[in-house]
Design a protein around this nucleic acid. Structure first.
Length: 423
RNA sequence: GGAGAGGUGGGUGAGUGGCUGAAACCAACAGUUUGCUAAACUGUCGUACGGGUUAAACUGUACCGGGGGUUCGAAUCCCCCCCUCUCCGCCA
């Protein structure tokens, strides 16, 4: 949620920024300003009237004590008169506040200056590319056939016990998952991240805190009986640890990492390009989350990108780094880089990480602040990134490293898998 | 699932209708004292949204888990909800 103050004071810049996103409902900005003005006017008159009636109430008390019941009675009836007015004004104010809130929820974050304008993924900019695209041997297979051939991941069994999009990992397939998770967690720890194991369900307030609600209500699994949402990413619980928190300066920066399964309904998004591991309802992901002082957040974004790129290099996967254009960024983000690995049998780039700076957009909702040296509380910046999402990494490893003898495990991973070939 | 207890400021914890935005203590911060540290003493010490100001000063309103009600007036009385804790039951 954008800060009201910024919309009020930098209206033109906000409108221009949202233009880079191709944001269709630009009129919401003016509506916010109008609603806010009405809200303030209403509050002023309401407060004045309340001040008046507070005074009257006090006077009545004094008159009663002084035994002047008659005068008290007169005053009492005049106060009763104001009550109707008060009620009405309170109603108006509540409506205005709710409207304002609702309008603010619908406005996405303003892209950072570096973000190019654009409508869709086609307008993203390749910021960096690394590694060579492997040449596969004759008869190379896509991963969804490799997993059958080596019997390491089983979609049919998953369908039997849960449904499509819930694969069962078996034998070396399961061990590969576990190895990747441990590898990612250990690497993050070396970079100073603290490991967190959060709940994988969250309450409604947490959903609002990081912006999944009300926006993406239908995308999360919902446990009706208990009013809990299954998390679509560890970002939700880990960032919400800091909801309604005022940090001390010495607590900063916050660098957390967590592994969780992630659950996504992916309603309506099934189609041609989602075979095999490309899109799942449940998948594993290690997520890094940072909380930073505003002036440090862009440096942190760089650091996080470099860290993720380092992981991909250690896994020997060819990748490219995309600077997302305004239209392709998430609702909450001010600046996002996507990392894509090349999956050689599919001949496709697969997104395996998304690293974002939300600036104060999330912390404004979360009320995540810190007390600076002058003793002033101010909003912090939040950032997060996948480091990394497993299924597509697995797909790329399987496809790129296949040989007639079997699938070669990247060297960095062998200490974790304790085997170097799937055959 | 059953029974009970409780939710007040950073913490402990007073407060059963007006003088309570809230005692006291602790913590924190600033200062005095001191050769330094400690102790002692003095002062400051909530948040949000408004008005006001170049900025302050100043000022209004709201907030004692959340929502509603009674009353001229609610932390205090009534109703509903939520949460936490304890015991019992069940269970990994």
């Amino acid at each position: 949620m954008l800060q009201l103050q910024i919309i009020r004071e930098q209206t033109q810049a906000v409108i221009e920024g949202l233009g880079k996103r191709n944001f269709k409902e630009i009129e919401l900005v003016q509506q916010v300003i109008d609603t806010d003005r009405q809200r303030r006017e209403t509050q002023k008159s309401l407060d004045d009237l309340k001040a008046q009636s507070n005074n009257d109430a006090r006077k009545i008390g004094e008159l009663m004590k002084a035994g002047k019941a008659e005068e008290a009675g007169i005053l009492r009836s005049s106060v009763a008169n104001d009550k109707e007015k008060l009620k009405a004004m309170e109603g108006t104010l509540a409506d205005l506040e709710a409207n304002l809130q609702e309008l603010l929820y619908r406005i996405p974050n303003v892209p950072a200056s570096i973000v190019p304008a654009g409508k869709s993924a086609e307008d993203n900019v390749v910021a960096h590319q690394h590694g060579t695209i492997p040449k596969l041997h004759e008869g190379a297979l896509p991963h969804w056939e490799l997993i059958r051939k080596y019997d390491i991941i089983d979609f049919d069994l998953g369908i039997k016990i849960a449904g499509a999009g819930f694969p069962v990992y078996k034998g070396k397939g399961a061990k590969l998952q576990r190895a990747l998770i441990n590898f990612f967690l250990d690497e993050a720890e070396k970079q100073g991240y603290r490991e967190i194991q959060p709940p994988i369900v969250v309450n409604e307030a947490s959903g609002y805190g990081t912006g999944q609600l009300p926006d993406k209500e239908g995308q999360m699994y919902f446990v009706n009986a208990d009013g809990l949402y299954m998390i679509p990413t560890a970002e939700v619980p880990i960032t919400n640890l800091y909801r309604d928190v005022v940090l001390a300066e010495e607590d900063l920066p916050v660098k957390n990492v967590g592994y969780t399964p992630c659950f996504r309904r992916e309603a309506g998004s099934w189609g041609a390009h989602v075979r095999g591991l490309n899109r799942l309802h449940q998948f594993d992901k290690v997520e890094i989350v940072q909380v930073r002082k505003p002036e440090e957040s862009y440096q942190a974004l760089e650091d996080m990108c470099h860290y993720v790129q380092g992981l991909l290099e250690k896994l020997e996967l060819p990748y490219r780094k995309l600077l997302l254009c305004g239209g392709d960024m998430g609702f909450n983000s001010a600046n996002t880089y996507d990392m894509e690995v090349f999956s050689a049998a599919q001949q496709r780039w697969l997104e395996v990480s998304s690293v974002s700076n939300f600036e104060a957009f999330q912390s404004n909702r979360l009320k995540l602040r810190y007390k600076n040296k002058e003793g002033k509380t101010q909003l912090l910046h939040t950032l997060n990134g996948s480091a990394l999402a497993l299924p597509r990494i697995v797909a790329a490893i399987l496809e790129n490293n296949q040989t007639p003898e079997g699938i070669r495990i990247p060297k960095a991973l062998v200490p974790y898998t304790r085997f170097d070939l799937i055959n």
